[in-house]
Design a binder for these strands. Structure first.
Ligand SMILES: [Zn+2]
Ligand SMILES: [Zn+2]
Length: 302
DNA sequence: TTGTTCGGACATTCAAGTTC
DNA sequence: AACTTGAATGTCCGAACAAA
């Protein structure tokens, strides 16, 4: 039941080409009706100019070690939301990228001008670039091709306990590091139009208004809090997800938020005692890069 | 119903190769 | 030197499974 997964922080954005949607867009439209997913465009992107082009999935440059190990979405702030959520903010550190190996021969490349290459390449180009406009990688990455209907937001506070799922933070016990709790949430303004929903009530289109953790006041350390304040546009994705994906998990995904203190554990034992935070492979095949260790994602490519 | 595991799709990086 | 290619490397979605 992935839908109820509290880790689906990066909720699927109904309009996003996430997953296999984008590639599938190159498929013949006739397959559309038989496609299981409802988050599809009836036409390949670029074929219908009026269709908002959707951004691709967005990744952080460097996930923190916790998110990396858990295969879960991280964000640029440190500590990241997920670590804060699980009360392991102090363990939120950037993962290390292993150095790329050098000296590997690659063989001749395909020609780009079509002089020396196979014929179908040109056709491929057209298919891949419907617009016919080559976009530098850097630009493509920096400029989302579509702007999701992100509602304007304004900071709003709520009294402790106002939302059952966001209970008032407990007072730190003596000798214990205080938990960090979001104290301010953003209320989208105005509310997006009514959402059509598919089966399960999963929204088709953008999700209904949620309250987005925006910043952390005391006892959240100031140096961290600033990172969660209404961000510079360049950092919006940390919360608003310019990739058009749902900014935050549905309300019930926050339910486990207090989990960290609901089940008190000795400092430093959180990760070990809370397997959901690390998601290390049982078979010992480290799924995630742990400084040179193989990650399952890399293997999948081979 | 909620939380965990993990296969694999997708995104990014960057050295090798190509072109100017 | 600048640009392009494409494999290595990394992120994390989402379904299956497990536990409460
Ligand atoms: Zn993280
Ligand atoms: Zn973290």
């Amino acid at each position: 039941m992935g839908d109820s997964n509290p880790e689906s922080d990066s909720q699927h954005d109904p309009q996003s080409p996430t997953d296999s949607v984008q590639p599938q867009m190159t498929m013949h439209p006739i397959t559309y009706s038989s496609m299981p997913t409802m988050h599809m465009y009836p036409f390949p992107p670029g074929m219908v100019s009026s269709q908002p082009t959707r951004t691709k999935r967005r990744q952080v440059k460097n996930a923190c070690t916790n998110c990396q190990k858990a295969c879960k979405k991280c964000d640029d702030a440190r500590p990241c939301l997920r670590c804060v959520k699980y009360g392991i903010a102090e363990e939120c550190i950037d993962s290390q990228r292993k150095e790329r190996q050098k000296g590997i021969k690659r063989g001749p490349y395909k020609k780009r001008d079509g002089k020396t290459t196979n014929v179908d390449e040109q056709q491929v180009d057209v298919a891949v670039q419907p617009q016919g406009i080559p976009v530098p990688q850097a630009v493509a990455a920096a400029v989302p091709s579509a702007t999701p209907p992100i509602p304007y937001a304004a900071p709003v506070t709520y009294p402790p306990g106002f939302y059952p799922q966001y209970p008032a933070p407990p007072a730190a016990k003596p000798g214990e590091t205080p938990m960090y709790y979001p104290q301010i949430y953003f209320a989208p303004i105005p509310a997006p139009p009514p959402q059509a929903t598919g089966q399960d009530g999963e929204p088709i289109g953008y999700p209904p208004p949620q309250y987005y953790p925006a910043t952390f006041l005391a006892p959240y350390p100031p140096q961290y809090a600033t990172q969660y304040m209404m961000p510079h546009p360049a950092h919006l994705h940390a919360h608003m997800r310019p990739d058009a994906q749902m900014p935050m998990a549905p309300a019930h995904h926050y339910a486990p938020y207090p989990q960290a203190y609901a089940k008190p554990m000795p400092r430093g034992a959180e990760v070990a005692a809370a397997p959901q935070m690390v998601d290390a492979r049982r078979d010992g095949r480290m799924d995630h890069t742990r400084m040179g260790e193989p990650i399952h994602g890399a293997q999948a490519k081979a």
